[in-house]
């Protein structure tokens, strides 16, 4: 019957385009294509102040995004902030890597920038990054500037 065939085709087209739209949303609109959970390892870093860093903020190495922040907590003894980040396992970092919190643009989001050192040994999964630089807090800088001006 010709009629049922066209019906089948139209329904098939509808379902296929719906699934294509779902696929489009997953790959093109969201960040699913750039995230693969099974091939990552976690690294921790202590900061005096993690500023406006958030969960899911990006972790970049030489400007390339290689991971994400997955947890931010407080060390109850030293009152420092412990940032847990997830890094793609294809990038192994030397154990004297340093981490700094920078701001993308003037009003942009904060992110962690990693600066690899010269060590031969790679950092262990769940290991700590020892050399860190805290986020710049605008009020502190302005306060510093005013104090310097006043003492002149």
């Amino acid at each position: 019957m010709q009629n049922t065939k066209t019906l089948d085709t139209l329904v098939g087209l509808f379902v296929a385009s719906g699934i294509a739209a779902l696929f489009f949303m997953a790959m093109q609109i969201s960040n699913l294509s750039s995230l693969s959970d099974d091939t990552t390892y976690t690294v921790l870093a202590r900061f005096e102040n993690s500023g406006g860093l958030k969960v899911k903020s990006s972790v970049s190495l030489a400007g390339v995004n290689i991971g994400r922040v997955i947890n931010i907590s407080i060390d109850k003894e030293t009152f420092q902030s412990i940032v847990k980040m997830q890094i793609e396992s294809q990038y192994s970092l030397p154990d004297d890597t340093s981490a700094s919190i920078f701001t993308a643009g003037l009003l942009g989001e904060q992110y962690i920038s990693l600066e690899p050192g010269g060590s031969e040994d790679a950092i262990e999964p769940n290991g700590f990054i020892d050399i860190t630089q805290s986020a710049l807090v605008l009020e502190e800088i302005i306060g510093q500037f005013l104090v310097d001006k006043a003492s002149e």
């Binding site: 719906g18 699934i19 739209a21 779902l22 609109i29």
Partner: peptide
Amino acid sequence: ISMPLLSALFSSIGV
């Protein structure tokens, strides 16, 4: 079945 497919189409075409 149709509703999620239609909504996905709506969002994708809107983008």
